[in-house]
């Protein structure tokens, strides 16, 4: 890479579509969630900051970031936890560079699996938050998160791998190439199965109901963020929102095929991407708002059945298409 490419890379990671863009998109996602959930419960939702409360999540996060950190005397070092959460944020920012909306696009064979392994940093951030707290509720929250992760991470990896593989071949499985590839009838089985699995993964990873088991405010005093506050909580909120936005974007671009039937060259195509993104978030929020929380073993079992097994079915469909049909 020469110096211009390096600068472009840094710009992409830091500004668009990386950290700044993705975190703003994340707050927008959070706003939709809060607004829809509020309307479903006959409340107003955020109204105070910005038009129809659009900037409320940003204001919330900024308030937390500017607050003083309460130093827990017996817990784990909050600076290390902050570092772990920040690596998660950066992992999500860097991973956007595989998407076609990025000005500099990285693409290699098997980047679908690289994506999943890099995103593991964001999972570590989630886990570190709960484990670092001295209270048992944080630990229980993170344990539940971990139990879900053990099913959700392989499901995410297998579904992203098989969708990518159905477009670019089992040995290439490039998610960046799959996002801009032409969709045909033979990709549909893997796309639908993988899409279902990935949708559940998104709901579980962004802690939407019925999978907000780690947060479990009612049964216990709190979940992973039971006694986290200040900048650490602010960074956690950024991480959580970015995770939700990233996965919704991945669903939009990979499963819903981005601007399809238009193209990236068409300005209307970008509008269509926006519409699809909002539709994904709205669907997830609607499901989330209309369901109650599951118990942990129910949640893991549900994710195992409809996310992990379905993603393995998607892998089977992709392999069948690749080895038998083609």
């Amino acid at each position: 890479m020469n110096s211009i490419e390096v600068l472009l890379y840094l710009f992409a990671v830091a500004v668009f579509p990386g950290f700044i863009f993705l975190s703003l998109l994340g707050t927008f996602t959070e706003w939709i969630e809060r607004k829809v959930a509020a309307r479903a419960q006959n409340r107003m939702g955020p109204t105070y900051v910005g038009p129809v409360g659009l900037f409320q999540p940003i204001a919330d996060i900024l308030k937390l970031l500017w607050a003083k950190e309460l130093v827990v005397s017996k817990g784990f070092s909050w600076r290390t936890t902050l570092f772990l959460v920040s690596t998660g944020v950066m992992a999500l920012s860097a991973a956007t560079l595989l998407m076609p909306i990025s000005p500099i696009r990285l693409s290699t064979p098997l980047d679908s699996l690289v994506l999943v392994y890099v995103l593991f940093y964001s999972t570590l951030g989630f886990l570190a938050i709960g484990f670092s707290s001295p209270s048992p509720f944080g630990v229980v929250g993170s344990s539940r998160m971990l139990s879900m992760i053990c099913v959700v991470e392989p499901a995410a990896a297998i579904s992203i791998y098989s969708i990518s593989a159905s477009f670019t071949g089992m040995d290439t499985a490039s998610v960046s190439k799959a996002m801009i590839a032409e969709v045909g009838l033979q990709q549909l089985p893997a796309l639908i199965l993988g899409g279902v699995a990935l949708f559940l993964v998104m709901m579980a990873k962004s802690l939407m109901k019925p999978f907000d088991i780690p947060e479990a405010e009612t049964e216990l005093a709190g979940g992973i963020i039971a006694d986290v506050g200040g900048p650490l909580l602010g960074m956690f909120r950024i991480l959580h929102d970015m995770e939700a936005a990233f996965l919704a974007m991945l669903l939009t671009l990979l499963v819903l095929r981005g601007p399809y039937p238009l193209s990236y060259a068409d300005p209307l195509g970008w509008v269509l991407i926006g519409v699809k993104f909002v539709a994904v978030v709205l669907t997830a929020t609607a499901i989330s708002a209309s369901l109650g929380r599951l118990r942990i073993e129910q949640g893991v079992a549900l994710l195992g059945k409809y996310s992990l097994l379905v993603s393995i079915a998607a892998l089977g469909a992709a392999a069948l298409n690749y080895y038998v049909v083609v």
Partner: peptide
């Protein structure tokens, strides 16, 4: 494994790694 056409092993590695993670 992907090159050799044994893609089920990809799933096996991922699932076993997740259990090991726990």
């Amino acid at each position: 494994f992907a090159d050799a056409g044994q893609v089920w092993m990809v799933a096996v590695i991922l699932v076993s790694s997740a259990f090991a993670l726990m």
